[in-house]
Structures are given as C-alpha cells and as structure tokens.
C-alpha cells in the first residue's frame, strides 16, 4: 500500500516538474516549486527517510520561497523567450533519459536487503553505532561521527556559498550609508499576520532548538535546525521589516554565527588531536569514549546549526538590502 502511495506521489511530482518547465511565468514556477518541495518531502517520508524529509521541509517551506521571491522582485517574473531550435536540447535529454532507464534495469529491487549498497559499510554502521556512541538515530551517527570529514566539508561549502552570495550581491559594510532605509519595508496595516506571527516566532525558535538537540534521538540535527530558526527570523523580518529584524539579530551576529559555526566544528577536531586522538575522533574527549562521542556530536551539530542559520539569514538580508536599493 505504501508503495502505491509513493508511486502516486512520484507521478504527481513528474506532472509538477513538467508544468514548471512549461510555464513562462516565473512566479507560477515558484509556486509550483513549493508544491514540488511538499511532494518531495512526503515522498522521502513515505520511503522512511525522515531526516531528509525534515531537511526538505525546513528549507522548502519557508526559505526557498522567500529567496526565490526576493530574486523575482529583483529580476522580473517573465521568462525570456528562448532563441534557436529546440531539437538539440530535446535530443540530448531524450538520449539521456533512455540511458538512465536502461541503467535502471541493473538496479536492485527497492528495499532489497541483498543490494550491493547494503553489503558494504551500512551493516557495520548499524552494528557499531550502539557500541560506539549509544544513540538511536544511526543517520546522525554516520553524519557527524563516522563520516565527520564529509560533514565538515559540507559546513565549509555552506560557509563558502554564503561568502560567495555576499560578494555577488555586494552588500555594503554596515556603516552610516546602510542606516537610511527610506521607508520601512514589511507589512503595514496587517494586524492579523503581525499578531499571529509574533506569537509563532518563539515557538518556531524553540522547535528549531528542539530539532537541534534531538538529532541523536529522532529526525533532525544541525542543518534542519539552522534552517528552521532562520525561517523564524525571516518571518519576523517579513512582518516587521528588514531594519527591525537586523536590529533584533544584527548582521555582526549573523556573520559571527557563520564563522563561529565553521570554526567550532574545526576546533573540535583540533581539540581531539591535542588530546591524543585523530582529527574528529571524539572518543578521546571524555574518559568514557561513548560519552566523548556523544559530546562531540552535540558540539559539532551545534556548529553546523549555527553556520547554516547564519548563512541563510545573511543571504536573505543580502537579497533584501539589494531590493531596497534603487
């Protein structure tokens, strides 16, 4: 039954994707994209990948739409008419599609326990997680301990992406020039969203922190938490205006979060080395190696959360500052 649902949702996904490609109104495309994201999250959920689904939810529900719409406000929402013949792209895509379909013939059945991917390191992870760090969520264990180097790399990718966006959008340094927003942006005369939003923000922040600190037990972790908390602040910025949000959470704090998060992650690794272990081998952090692992995971997840939250908010503010400029 579950597979029928998954198949059904995948069909809807394809229909939505085709519609996104075919529409020339970019605003409509953004709206369809958010439907696409919802479908994607439901699909991940049905396939039992709750961590990924939560990531999709945290990023897709708020941040993506907001950033897409900011970009549309800068760029206009009608697609440029396309030039030249469509035959070449159509042919390329067609050949690729045939190749991919051909490749799937070799794919093992969905959920087949004998598939090669389940024979390699996965059983070892499943077996060793309770022994090494004693936490229920193996995804978090793999992400932050077994494959800690990968996650460190990802955090630095987020860091680099944030710096890249800030360079491209050319935010001025916070100085006297930036202090003159002619008129406050945000919603005016909109009592209902403002009052309800104000009520929601603390709960969103708390939920983000809950996701942050329960990564070991349920779906969640630093990436999702960072995105959720960023969404809470973005909600506040939408309701009360840019300037007000920057007053509540200043830009220096945001940049501090990005840099501090990345450094915190790296510092944990260095501390591990100083205490006589390998880089990012948390076992040496405490007398009891299992507890050391748990501490290490909590600290680096906090680093990830800080970096993601700071990066998303910096990007959001960069877009908004650009928008306010003539």
């Amino acid at each position: 039954m579950i597979y029928v649902f998954a198949l059904f949702l995948l069909t809807l996904l394809v229909i939505t994707a085709v519609a996104i490609v075919r529409t020339t109104n970019l605003f409509v495309a953004v709206m369809l994209t958010s439907i696409f994201s919802l479908l994607m999250a439901a699909n991940f959920f049905i396939l039992d990948a709750a961590d990924v689904a939560l990531t999709e939810a945290a990023v897709g529900a708020g941040v993506t739409t907001v950033i897409f719409l900011s970009a549309l406000a800068l760029a206009g929402d009608v697609e440029q008419p396309r030039l030249g013949s469509r035959l070449l792209p159509l042919g390329t895509v067609g050949v690729l599609a045939v190749l991919i379909i051909y490749a799937t013939f070799d794919k093992p059945r969905l959920g087949d326990p004998d598939a090669p991917v389940h024979q390699h390191v996965a059983p070892w992870y499943l077996e060793k997680t309770p022994e090494y760090m004693d936490i229920p969520n193996v995804v978090t264990a793999v992400l932050s301990s077994f494959r800690g180097y990968d996650t460190l790399g990802e955090v630095f990718v987020v860091f680099a992406a944030c710096i890249g966006v800030l360079f491209i959008l050319g935010v001025r340094p916070p100085g006297p020039a930036a202090e003159l927003p002619a008129e406050p942006s945000g919603l005016r005369h909109h009592l209902i969203p403002q009052v309800v939003g104000r009520l929601l923000v603390p709960f969103i922040v708390l939920f983000g922190l809950y996701v942050q600190f329960h990564g070991e037990y349920g779906p969640g972790g630093g990436f999702q938490a960072g995105a959720i908390i960023a969404t809470g602040v973005i909600l506040y910025a939408l309701l009360e205006g840019e300037a007000e949000a920057l007053r509540a959470v200043p830009r220096s704090v945001l940049l501090g979060l990005v840099v501090g998060g990345a450094l915190l992650f790296g510092a944990v690794g260095v501390v591990c080395m100083l205490m006589g272990g390998a880089f990012l081998d948390y076992s040496v952090l405490a007398a009891d190696p299992v507890f050391g692992q748990q501490m290490g995971i909590i600290v680096i997840e906090a680093g990830v959360g800080m970096a993601v939250c700071g990066a998303l908010l910096s990007i959001f503010h960069a877009f908004a500052a650009r928008e306010g400029r003539p």
Partner: peptide, 16 residues
C-alpha cells in the same frame, strides 16, 4: 493548534 492558528492567517494574507 498551530494549523488552526496559521491556516486563517495564511488565508487572510492571500485574500488581502
């Protein structure tokens, strides 16, 4: 509770 709180707010925002 959150759905009943945000639902009408979103509807209002859209209608407005």
């Amino acid at each position: 509770l959150f759905l009943l709180l945000t639902g009408p707010t979103a509807t209002y925002a859209l209608a407005n």
